[in-house]
Design a protein around this nucleic acid. Sequence first.
DNA 1: TAAATATGCAACCTTATGGTTGTTGATCCC
DNA 2: GGGATCAACAACCATAAGGTTGCATATTTA
Lengths: 115, 115
Amino acid sequence: MSQKTLSAAGRRRNYAPIFAALGDETRLSIVAKLSTGEPHSIARLTDGTHLTRQAVTKHLRVLEGAHLVHSVRAGRENLYELDPGPIREVREYADVVSQHWDRALARLKALVEED
Amino acid sequence: MSQKTLSAAGRRRNYAPIFAALGDETRLSIVAKLSTGEPHSIARLTDGTHLTRQAVTKHLRVLEGAHLVHSVRAGRENLYELDPGPIREVREYADVVSQHWDRALARLKALVEED
DNA sequence: TAAATATGCAACCTTATGGTTGTTGATCCC
DNA sequence: GGGATCAACAACCATAAGGTTGCATATTTA
């Protein structure tokens, strides 16, 4: 059955896991590196950090779980690439909340000013 | 001294705490309730949830720590209100990353197509 | 003033999170 | 083949997170 397009407010989407995945400096820097479009291996993503490759692997798993990245096996290395979808959803979410807030404030202002 | 307006990419702002604060369903629903502009007491924010008032209080502290909300004491109750700033920053962040990605893809596409 | 309401503080519990080390298995390259 | 490279799996550890209960405190309000 076809999924009806829900209103931004109505679709009680699970944004929480996406935000949670982005709520870590290391993972944000991984996202930053991958946002160049160039796929990175785990070893490469580990270079320049003070972390172990294993730690970076775990972070990648978290990002993968939130569908923020996906990996492709290439020979002996595992290439990770950004999945832009969830980030666009984050943008929409923030947009909706901001607008909601702005309109609410406008209404309150109008209420106060009507005399 | 005046804080120079940094570029969205240049200001290595700490987005992680904001994302982390939003990375929880309960806190997202709190933000949703407050985005109406109407201040809510802790008791009111607790109504309708299956949580304890103490649990909600803890979540509010987290949101407060990320400057997503602030509270004003009104008699015996503590009214919480949304702080829209961080959410706008989140929107900008997602916007920048999305655009970065899109431009990177466009460059790759151009590279492939040049023959 | 006394009951009811709204909150704060502290202690405690369980599980998730971020990280490490150690070992094993593929794969590339000389 | 054999060493170097890239990565997976598992065990383990310390601390943070999310939640609860119990008790104390301020503020309405009947």
